[in-house]
């Protein structure tokens, strides 16, 4: 549900990092906060955590402006992954415009991934969102660890769904931007369809993505592409 105020020339978008406990959702936001330019983003707000486990949610806002003057605010949230915080997850998922599902690559986490994904499907429905029309990107995180699911297996499982899958090591930032970029691309398509970002506001998909992904200064400007997407 895109929040668009034509009169105020303001658009608010919401993306949610979903996934099982400890899969690295909060770490993804931490890395985005570090890697992206200060001018394009607000502060990272981490609401009460307990031993590093998210209890409420984390929030990182991004800002950009279309040539038409339309101000766009994009809020990235993480949900708490622990099973018992389901009600909070539902609350955070409300009105999401896009979802990144962060899976834990470790083989022993397979069941948790599956359960969390089913939970996502169920909760999307419960908050009145359609699974098929919500932009979704999957990230297989923790590729640096031993005992992880193989690329072939990932392909086999997700290949035919058409959902883009990225591998990442959020701990050192690899794949984090690529995942986010893939989601932004999908998100743009949905928004453009509804409020004609390109024709009415002069904002192309490439500009939309490039503005948000402006690297933090002091950085070489190069985006680490070691863990390329499988798209």
């Amino acid at each position: 549900m895109i929040e668009y105020d034509e009169f105020e020339k303001r658009l608010v978008l919401k993306v949610v990092y979903y996934g099982p406990a400890l899969s690295g959702k909060t770490t993804n936001l931490l890395r985005l906060h570090e890697l992206l330019a200060r001018e394009q983003r607000g502060d990272l707000m981490v609401l009460d955590t307990k031993d590093d486990r998210t209890i409420y949610f984390d929030l990182l806002p991004f800002f950009l402006q279309a040539p038409s003057g339309l101000k766009i605010k994009l809020k990235a949230y993480t949900v708490p992954g622990q099973v018992r915080h389901d009600a909070t997850r539902k609350a955070v998922l409300q009105r999401a415009d896009g979802v990144v599902f962060v899976a834990d690559s470790q083989l022993k986490e397979t069941t948790n991934n599956v359960e969390s994904f089913q939970n996502l499907e169920r909760n999307l429905k419960m908050v009145g969102l359609s699974f098929d029309s919500t932009p979704l990107v999957i990230q297989y995180n923790k590729r640096d660890l031993p005992g992880i699911v193989s690329t072939e297996d990932i392909d086999r499982v997700w290949g035919e769904t058409g959902i883009p899958v990225h591998r990442a090591c959020a701990l050192d930032g690899g794949g984090v931007l690529e995942t986010f970029r893939a989601l932004l691309g999908r998100l743009y398509l949905g928004v453009d369809e509804k409020i004609s970002l390109e024709s009415d506001h002069g904002l192309s998909r490439e500009d939309f993505i490039a503005q948000i992904l402006r690297p933090a200064s002091g950085d070489s400007g190069e985006i680490d592409l070691r863990e390329g997407g499988l798209e």
């Binding site: 707000m45 609401l47 009460d48 409420y56 949610f57 018992r84 009600a87 909070t88 539902k90």
Partner: peptide, 27 residues
Amino acid sequence: TNNLKRMLTTEIHTQVVRQSYEELLES
């Protein structure tokens, strides 16, 4: 910032009425 956090957490409290007593106390 504090007020915002308080409001956000209170909102969640209101929604998450089934959350366990322990956690409510904690937060």
